[in-house]
Amino acid sequence: MSKPQVVLLPGAWHLPTCFSLIIPKLKAAGYTVHTTQLPSVTDKNPPKDLSADIAAVQTVVEKAIGSGNDVIVVPHSWAGFVAGSALVGYSKKERESKGQKGGVVRCGYMCAFMVPEGVSLSDTNQGPPPTWWTIEGDHFSRLTDSAGDILYSDLPDSQRAHWFEKASRTHSLHAFEAKATGESWKQIPTYYLICEDDLAIPVAGQEAMTGMVKNMGGELWTERLKSSHSPFLSHVGETVAWIKRIAGEHA
């Protein structure tokens, strides 16, 4: 039986290179891996809503489905917010009901946002931005120099600096203010990796989101990892093993 295709979606301010430690291991295990940069991660012409990010996710997922493949989608952080809207109609069950082959069979949210339709990321934080990012002008959010200490808190200082240099500095502010347009997690079985040492999305926030999804009828399972906000950098083996379990491997 062929293995499902894997789609990795990076979070806010981040480029697909953030997955460069786990992609080779997934490929070595026999998985075809896809990823893409989300248009809201940019320092010019920022999207004014969520539509560009949604379109980018749908494009890479359609490529993974191809002529009828099973697909698992693994969003990190901000990308979970996008996936909730972008994957509406892409579950294998929904596609089969329309006579289409293949589709998304499971999702794996890595300390990622899950919100109801009609809620924006800004709605979840009514106070000022945290100290590790700031608002720049009318269009951008920008990481501050302290962001590496938050996003990669369990990496050595030299590695924090390395990955911070590889991250984009800016992200569309309008995207943070856009409302979610769907709740795909109601249709797609979902696994959630709670990162217990996450300083960007504290455990209480992750638990609140997973509880909300269960209360709204979503099929969701959680695992816990003593990791910072970036488990694909600090806990590479554990993250790959978790993704493989989502794909159906249990050895």
Rank of each mutant, 00 (worst) to 15 (best):
residue 30 G to D: 12
residue 247 A to N: 01
residue 149 D to S: 09
residue 181 T to I: 10
residue 146 S to G: 03
residue 100 Q to V: 11
residue 7 V to H: 02
residue 28 A to Q: 15
residue 182 G to W: 12
residue 195 C to Y: 00
residue 46 P to H: 10
residue 83 A to C: 15
residue 19 F to M: 04
residue 97 S to Q: 14
residue 135 I to W: 03
residue 88 V to G: 00
residue 240 V to W: 01
residue 140 F to C: 04
residue 66 G to I: 05
residue 55 A to I: 09
residue 244 K to Y: 07
residue 91 S to K: 03
residue 187 Q to T: 15
residue 90 Y to V: 01
residue 246 I to G: 07
residue 71 V to R: 01
residue 42 T to S: 06
residue 110 M to W: 11
residue 117 E to F: 12
residue 221 W to E: 14
residue 221 W to Q: 14
residue 176 F to D: 05
residue 136 E to N: 08
residue 158 S to P: 00
residue 98 K to N: 13
residue 150 I to Q: 04
residue 210 T to V: 15
residue 241 A to N: 11
residue 115 V to Q: 04
residue 177 E to L: 12
residue 90 Y to K: 08
residue 146 S to M: 08
residue 169 R to L: 11
residue 219 E to G: 00
residue 207 E to A: 12
residue 147 A to Q: 02
residue 70 D to E: 14
residue 83 A to T: 08
residue 243 I to H: 01
residue 102 G to L: 08
residue 23 I to W: 02
residue 189 P to L: 09
residue 147 A to R: 02
residue 171 H to N: 10
residue 38 L to D: 00
residue 168 S to H: 09
residue 251 A to L: 13
residue 25 K to L: 14
residue 232 F to T: 03
residue 212 M to H: 03
residue 143 L to P: 03
residue 45 N to Q: 12
residue 76 H to K: 06
residue 59 T to G: 12
residue 147 A to C: 06
residue 137 G to Q: 05
residue 204 A to K: 14
residue 149 D to L: 02
residue 236 V to N: 09
residue 83 A to D: 07
residue 29 A to F: 07
residue 223 E to Q: 14
residue 30 G to I: 11
residue 234 S to M: 05
residue 229 H to P: 04
residue 186 K to D: 10
